[in-house]
Design a protein around this nucleic acid. Structure first.
Length: 497
RNA sequence: GGUCGCGUGGCCGAGUGGCUAGGCAAAGGUCUGCAAAACCUUGUACAGCGGUUCGAAUCCGCUCGCGACCUCCA
């Protein structure tokens, strides 16, 4: 396998070799949340996926500027009411108070799932001038028109003149163009159903409003991503990501706006994560088929039999490729729980292995090296985390066998063992972003010391063949969900799942 | 209705023409004072039907089932 990075580009619908615009640097934009409601697990999956991608690109040595926005204005509901305004009315809060509340909640959730903060996290409301400028540019280029203080993107004209519309989302342009004005219903300001607002005149009761050359109003939903990606990453940049459900119309319109404003191509590679399903259906706030991250962690939901730690959930998600749908079920989570524990135990065991200086590297050494190389190879193939994890689990088997004595360390070169330790550290924690739950308990080492004492006392009892005492200790610990593992080299312990 | 995608062993989930994915569960064995843990072994899996091919889970066609997008959604 080659060590060049390949990724699936939604634009071409093919895996392509990744070639950044500027060697050594990557500009990456991911559509962030709309902060008018609590983040749900689907959001988490997408941001965890891109977190791993961000981490891996960094691992490869790229200097990555990762921009992930916060949308706090412009997102319209079916009835045309601004989402921020809706939230404000329901809870009697200022719109920015709503945005702030859910932004904080979102950040907290990202922290819980160990998602790294992006390099820049721009807010739509903080970039009104940039958006107004973009509307002006689009108007100047003739791809928009003003009606009663609102400005609409002239999608029909754009389609006819550039032929660029629909490429990303695979729309049938003929069909889009064929739609008549009859489909417009009450939104009669638009000339064509495919047109979309880039500036909206605010109705009298609308709270969020800014002055513009056309009216006091607010920017259209799709505009902020075009404006902010251009501002921070340039007119053309490397990667743009987001959930699959944003492909149309959001991303398609983004591309149109970029080109319509400056003939800019925008992102060269588009990446889309697939949906998280619950009981075989898409998780969605609107139809109630949902479980919140808090509920999942606490086990406070009819969908799960117990709570799952954030790291188990993260691991669960990494066991599926980002472009596949993932069906969340209690059974699958239980399997992930145990698998995650096995991975963590394997890592712990590995770090305890001591190399033999006079080892004679043989077939085992070669096998380890091959498996290790495979981990990176899989990641280079469109960030295939499930396959990379499969390679790591194969390594875990070897590690356990080395510990258990079924395989011998005198066949492993000290350098190979060192590299293996380093690889586990880098991939499990640095790239997959997993954390050991035990460490997250706030354990300061007291427990470990206590356990060591108990293990020593039990070992003494065992040398006396005092099985009663030995078993009493073992059973009592088991009742506390602490498991003793007797091995050739002594006894170790861990938490039971 | 239109567009796109999916259907893999008990469960989850990789895999795109020949070569063991992996995790969980299950069975047998090794180890153990007994266990557990660990290790080893074990699954005639690719929705159905037909076709292409020396060879298909993988390509083509049809059928059935499911999902996503088309409207707010990561």
């Amino acid at each position: 396998m080659s060590n060049e990075l390949k990724l699936y580009n939604s634009l071409s619908r093919e895996k392509e070799t990744f070639q950044p615009l500027k060697e050594g640097y990557v500009g990456m934009y991911v559509c962030g949340p709309t902060v008018y409601y609590d983040a749900h697990l689907g959001n988490c999956r997408t941001f965890i996926s891109f977190d791993v991608i961000y981490r891996y690109l960094t691992h490869l040595g790229y200097r990555v500027r990762y921009v992930r926005n916060i949308t706090d204005v412009g997102h319209l509901l079916d009835d045309g009411e601004d989402r921020m305004l809706k939230g404000a009315r329901l809870e009697q809060l200022e719109p920015m108070e709503v945005a702030q509340k859910y932004t904080v909640g979102f950040h907290e959730m990202m922290r819980i799932f160990n998602v790294l903060p992006p390099s820049i996290e721009p807010r739509a409301t903080g970039h009104i001038p940039e958006q107004i400028e973009m509307v002006q540019d689009i108007l100047k280029n003739g791809y928009a028109y003003e009606v009663n203080g609102s400005v609409y993107f002239d999608t029909l004209k754009f389609m006819q003149q550039t032929g660029l519309y629909g490429t990303l989302s695979g729309r049938n342009v003929e069909e889009l163009m064929a739609e008549s004005r009859d489909n417009l219903k009450n939104q009669s300001e638009k000339r064509h159903p495919a047109d979309f607002a880039i500036w909206m005149k605010a109705s009298p009761e609308h709270i969020m409003r800014w002055r513009s050359p056309w009216s006091e109003g607010f920017p259209g939903w799709h505009l902020e991503c075009s404006a902010m990606s251009t501002k921070y990453l340039g007119a053309e940049f490397d990667l743009h990501g987001g959930g699959n459900d944003l492909k149309f119309p959001h991303h398609e319109n983004e591309v149109a706006q970029n080109f319509g404003s400056c003939q800019c191509k925008g992102a060269r590679y588009w990446m889309h994560t697939n949906m998280l399903l619950l009981n075989g259906k898409k998780m969605s706030k609107s139809d109630g088929n949902t479980i919140s991250p808090h509920e999942l962690i606490a086990g406070d939901s009819a969908h799960v039999t117990k709570g799952y730690s954030p790291m188990v959930v993260r691991f669960f998600m990494l066991q599926t490729h980002y472009r596949s749908t993932l069906d969340l079920t209690d059974e699958a989570l239980q399997a992930a729980d145990k698998g995650f524990r096995r991975l963590m135990d394997g890592h712990k065991t590995l770090q305890s292995l001591q190399a033999l200086p006079d080892a004679q590297p043989g077939a085992l050494d070669a096998e380890l090296l091959e498996l290790m190389a495979g981990v990176a190879d899989e990641m280079n193939d469109d960030f295939n985390t499930p396959k990379a994890l499969a390679r790591i689990f194969e390594l875990v088997s070897r590690i356990n066998a080395l510990k258990g004595g079924q395989l011998s360390l005198d066949q492993v070169a000290p350098d190979t063992l060192d590299r293996l330790k380093q690889l586990f550290q880098e991939f499990i924690f640095g790239i997959f972003g997993l954390q050991n739950d035990d460490a997250a308990d706030g354990d300061d080492g007291t427990l470990d010391g206590l356990m060591q004492l108990i293990i020593d006392i039990r070992a003494e009892a065992r040398t006396r063949k005092d099985w009663g005492t030995s078993d009493k200790i073992r059973d009592a610990l088991k009742a506390l969900s602490l498991q003793l593992k007797d091995g050739k080299e002594g006894t170790s312990w861990g938490r039971e799942v």
